[in-house]
């Protein structure tokens, strides 16, 4: 607990000090735990633009976006050090958002995801899969 509290009591305000690898999430559904998804879908595809009224509403209330930022933070922590908690958090959060958008297929009991990172070094853009999560049983309606 103390290790979580110290950086809050004595914060370091190094916002965007360097631009590290940027995570992207792909997800898929499978019938058996030893399978790979037939199709990987990208999670969190950006809209083309945000209307002014929607932007004003999001200023006051934007739970889904903040969930996405939290998922991102979990992934960045995973890059530093593997943690089962973070791996599960990402799965739970993505499933919750997919469930809210009715995007959970009925006939596939397992969900899995992978994390790609995009890096830009000397204008050479790389897009690599660096983490594949274990399959998670989908519990519909309780995410």
């Amino acid at each position: 607990m103390f290790k979580f509290l110290l950086p809050i009591l004595f914060p370091s305000w190094r916002f965007f000090s360097s631009i590290g690898p940027s995570p992207r999430f792909d997800f898929g559904f499978i019938k058996y735990t030893d399978e790979q998804p037939e199709v990987w879908q990208e999670f969190s595809v950006l809209p083309d633009k945000i209307e002014l009224t929607k932007g004003i509403v999001r200023l006051l209330h934007n739970p889904e976006w903040n969930e996405r930022l939290y998922i991102n933070t979990c992934a960045e922590n995973l890059f530093d050090q593997y943690s089962e908690f973070r791996e599960q958090e990402i799965a739970r959060r993505i499933l919750w958002i997919l469930n809210r958008h009715n995007q959970l297929p009925e006939d596939y009991p397992y969900f899995c995801y992978r994390i790609r990172v995009i890096t830009n070094e000397d204008n050479l853009v790389k897009d690599e899969v660096i983490f594949s999560a274990k399959p998670f049983l989908v519990k519909r309606g309780v995410q």
Binding site: F16, I19, S22, P23, R24, S44, L46, P47, D48, K49, I50, R58, W65, R68, L69, N72, I118, T119, N120, V125
Partner: peptide, 13 residues
């Protein structure tokens, strides 16, 4: 790079 690659920009525009 923040605009081009990170998860922060809210839209494609």
């Amino acid at each position: 790079n923040v605009f081009a690659f990170t998860a922060y920009p809210v839209s494609q525009s």
